[in-house]
Design a protein around this nucleic acid. Structure first.
Length: 833
RNA sequence: GCGGACGUGGCGAAACCGGUAGACGCAGCCGACUUAAAAUCGGCUUCCGAACAGGAGUGCGGGUUCGAGUCCCGCCGUCCGCACCA
């Protein structure tokens, strides 16, 4: 009688053995072809959550599968260990960010090991340690030397209570998310990385990424936001010319006003002489920036009291200060062409400005433009002097040519992408390796002084950046002139840390960030897996950083991630008590709140979150069901790119399947020596081998799982035979990437050679992939009436004859003669009567 | 507003190039084993229908085709991203 699979015992034993033998350590000098499988490394927030488990299980299956198919696999793990939560913990609990972070790493590492992931822990890294961020400082200085880093005054969100800069995401309704204080716009000197120098290549490079989701590529494309157009300078009645940016220079004869942003010099000048203009500007700045506010906000303008001169007609146009023009985009000024831009039309109707048609819409050619809907389509130019009868593109070119010849404008490209501001007034981050000297300015720390180590003796009892308050740390001598100087106390945005960690995984010498030749062996990452929330920032920064290192000669790869996969979230039902409190799964049983005995309401299935209390901690689940059952659940049912609803019933089902496998594996010895073959089972086995391989390569784990269920069911029902024995032995290897512990246990118990983790993927007998009999559907007028079992390759006439002979078919045809018969060989016969 | 994705049983889903819709799992129902329960095993499980008669059915309405979940046109809905981008 088969025993039960003791997951707890087996998990521990195999995990220890893999670790002792360094089974999953990647060898740089291996002769095998190399494969780099990477999941986005976690922030050490405290404990592993289900999202991590899902993410790392997917990567693990692929990594283990690649090993079995003959690759030397690099599958590393590390910690994105700098960031604000550590400082928040320091302020709330009085612990040191470093201690808090390192404790979390220890906890989470143990949790990851408990899941049996095939990770190369010899390459583990944490971005908060000097042996990582010191090399990052070296790379920063390398980019600085290459002219890709600069310093500039820039407006930031300043929280006056916490005395720190906040990221845009941390400003909620104009207030700091922690302090609740009204956030101020302050100008601070900030360090920037010149990502805009790479805008064109980052955009073009997307085209080569054919193993990335289109969605992510599109998001990056929109973020980079390339628009081609023209800068046009209009003479202004009193003062400097105003330069506008337009994507539609062809419509210039329809321009009837110029609008500038509230921060524009023209607006500022108007404010000096006109208090009402100042009042209007103040009103503009009050406006919120949330989606709803922008949606409802009225387009407002204030006549700046100046006029701009049209370059062709010489006619004057009013200049408005307008609340819808952004100083940050283009030139901070636009020309208004109401007939062919909706926003301009709204504005013109409101302030009774001329609206002149200059592009024919197919029906109308006259200058008079009626209605409140702008015509933004293409067509022939009209009412436009020398542009008349040209199409839009030709007219654009013509205006640009004239502007360039006459010196009042030029064709140009404007990007939405801004340079990357990397300064953070924070303690827990990579110190920016710069020294400020009164005489020499900003001076890079010399290479032999790296790393610039974060001091550990800091306090968090006062708001603000502890580095700035530290008694000694920032006082240093200028590396150039030796006079006393001041360290930069800002730290780097943590996105810098995650922009190159995948390179450091591939190669980690002590004396430099990485070795170019070793990196070349592993990069680019073949398959990168993580959440969509990183579709823009992290993935764009990592692409930029890689390209910057390539341009400056440190590496040879341009794109860091060949394949990208964005997995869905783990979700769970939500529960609310009768009085409207969120309840956790443990507080609920059979539709009733355990504590009160009152009925609960079951809400939507949502992303696991602490606020809705619908999280499930993987820790106790793994202890209860074993790592294999949890891994199996993570791969089952939902396609990996979609959300996966966690359920108690689901994990029970996975556990039952693990036990089913064990009954087959454990019973194998009893049938040793059984003779005879089972052709149908052989066929199913080989179809499954081929099918799983294809599914795993495509990351279609849910389909692979379904095929394994089918094969398992068929083996269970099959009579003992040599085929069945062979199928069970092969099944061990087929499930090994997904449920590695039980696979190792079964492999060892049945005399397998070495570790199953090192065993080769079973070979497919191609001859067994084809069936010799097929089921052919028989339709009459497109409706299914019968199915026939025919030898594969049956001739059309024979299939047709067999179909016509069917009693069901004859009944359906009601004695009518067949008018036409369509035969799709080995699939169907359709009789049109 | 712009851009994108997706709508299939009670639920998660599958269906490769237009060819038997609902594989596989969950939940449910019936049965076997058991003193009993659990575990396990067998069967059923899209809807209407007594039916292994027949009919309907992949968000809705049209179309192309011998044949449409799949292709085309028009709607409706859900989710995601961006957002006063000139």
């Amino acid at each position: 009688m088969a025993s039960r699979f003791n997951a707890l015992k087996a998990d521990a034993a195999w995990q220890k053995l893999w670790e002792d033998r360094r089974t999953f350590a990647a060898r740089d000098d291996s002769p095998r072809p190399k494969s780099y499988v990477l999941e986005m490394f976690p922030y050490p927030s405290g404990r592993i959550h289900m999202g991590h488990v899902r993410n790392y299980t997917m990567g693990d299956v692929l990594a283990r599968f690649r090993r079995m198919t003959g690759y030397e696999v690099l599958h590393p793990m590390g910690w994105d260990a700098f960031g604000m939560p550590a400082e928040n913990a320091a302020m709330e609990k009085g612990v040191h960010p470093g201690g808090w972070t390192r404790d979390n790493i220890a906890t989470m590492k143990a949790q990851l090991k408990r899941l049996g992931f095939a990770l190369d822990w010899t390459r583990e890294l944490a971005t908060c340690e000097p042996d990582y961020y010191g090399h990052e400082q070296a790379l920063f200085l390398h980019l600085y030397a290459a002219g890709l880093v600069y310093r500039k005054e820039s407006p930031v969100n300043w929280d006056p209570v916490d005395m720190t800069v906040l990221a845009n995401e941390q400003v909620i309704d104009g207030r700091g998310w922690r302090s609740g204080a009204l956030v101020e716009k302050r100008k601070l000197s900030q360090w920037f990385l010149k990502i805009t120098d790479f805008a064109d290549e980052l955009l073009d490079g997307l085209q080569s990424l054919d193993q990335w989701p289109d969605k992510v590529k599109l998001m990056q494309e929109n973020w980079i936001g390339k628009s081609r157009g023209m800068k046009i300078r209009f003479q202004v009645s009193d003062g400097q010319p105003v330069e506008v940016f337009s994507t539609r220079p062809d419509t210039i004869f329809g321009a009837s006003f110029v609008a500038v942003a509230a921060d524009h010099p023209i607006a500022q000048a108007a404010a000096l002489r006109d208090p009402e203009a100042q009042a209007f500007i103040d009103r503009c700045k009050q406006g919120g920036t949330t989606a709803a506010e922008i949606e409802t906000q009225e387009k407002l303008g204030y006549d700046a009291g100046a006029t701009a001169t049209h370059p062709f007609t010489g006619l004057p146009m009013p200049v408005f200060i307008a609340n819808f023009v952004l100083m940050e985009y283009g030139t901070g000024a636009v020309m208004g062409v109401p007939a062919h831009d909706q926003r301009d039309l709204d504005f013109a109707r409101k302030y009774q400005l001329p609206v002149r048609r200059v592009v024919a819409d197919g029906e109308h050619r006259d200058p008079l433009f009626e209605g409140d809907e702008a015509y933004t389509g293409g067509g022939q130019l009209v009412n436009s002097d020398f542009l008349d009868d040209m199409d839009v593109d030709a007219a654009k070119a013509a205006v640009i040519a004239r502007g360039e010849a006459d010196g009042w404008g030029e064709g140009t490209t404007v990007w939405r992408l801004r340079d990357w501001g990397v300064s953070r007034q924070r303690y827990w981050g990579t110190p920016i390796p710069i020294i400020h000297c009164e005489d020499c300015g900003a001076v890079p720390v010399s290479q032999d002084q790296l790393p610039v180590v974060l001091p550990e003796d800091v306090s968090f009892d006062v708001p603000g950046n502890p580095l700035d308050r530290h008694p000694t740390w920032k006082h240093v001598d200028c590396p150039t002139c030796g006079k006393s100087a001041r360290r930069e106390t800002d730290t780097l945005d943590t996105f810098a840390d995650s922009s190159w960690y995948f390179i450091r995984f591939a190669s980690q010498p002590k004396d430099k960030p990485f070795d170019k030749d070793v990196v070349a062996q592993w990069l680019p990452v073949g398959q990168y897996i993580g959440g969509v929330e990183h579709a823009i920032l992290h993935l764009l920064y990592a692409r930029f950083w890689t390209r910057a290192l390539k341009r400056t000669g440190l590496i040879d790869v341009a794109e860091p991630f060949t394949g990208l996969f964005t997995q869905g979230m783990v979700t769970h039902e939500t529960y609310k008590s009768s009085d409207g409190r969120w309840l956790g799964p443990a507080e609920v049983q059979d539709g009733v709140e355990i504590a009160t005995g009152e009925a609960i309401t079951v809400g939507r299935v949502e992303k696991m979150s602490k606020s809705k209390k619908n999280t499930v901690d993987p820790g106790p689940i793994v202890d209860q069901y074993g790592a294999d059952a949890v891994r199996w659940f993570m791969l089952s049912d939902s396609p990996p790119e979609r959300d996966l609803p966690w359920s108690e019933a689901g994990i029970e089902g996975s556990w039952r399947f693990v036990q089913r496998l064990w009954r087959l594996f454990d019973g194998l010895a009893e049938q040793a020596g059984t003779e005879g073959s089972d052709k149908a089972l052989d066929r199913k086995l080989h179809q499954t081998i081929a099918g799983i391989a294809a599914d795993v390569e495509a990351l279609a784990f849910n389909k692979a799982v379904a095929k394994l269920y089918e094969l398992t069911g068929m083996i269970e029902k099959a009579a003992p035979s040599a085929s069945r024995t062979q199928a069970i032995r092969t099944l061990m290897r087929l499930v090994a990437p997904m449920v590695p512990h039980i696979a190792e246990e079964a492999w060892a118990a049945n005399g397998g050679d070495g570790l199953i983790a090192d065993a080769p993927w079973p070979e497919v007998d191609a001859a067994l992939l084809v069936e010799d009999e097929v089921t052919v559907a028989v339709q009459v007028n497109g409706k299914l009436r019968d199915t026939l079992t025919l030898p594969k390759g049956t001739a059309r006439e024979d299939a047709e004859a067999a179909a016509l002979a069917s009693a069901n078919v004859q009944r359906a045809m009601e004695g009518k003669p067949p008018r036409k018969v369509i035969v799709v060989p080995d699939r169907l016969v359709n009789i049109v009567a």
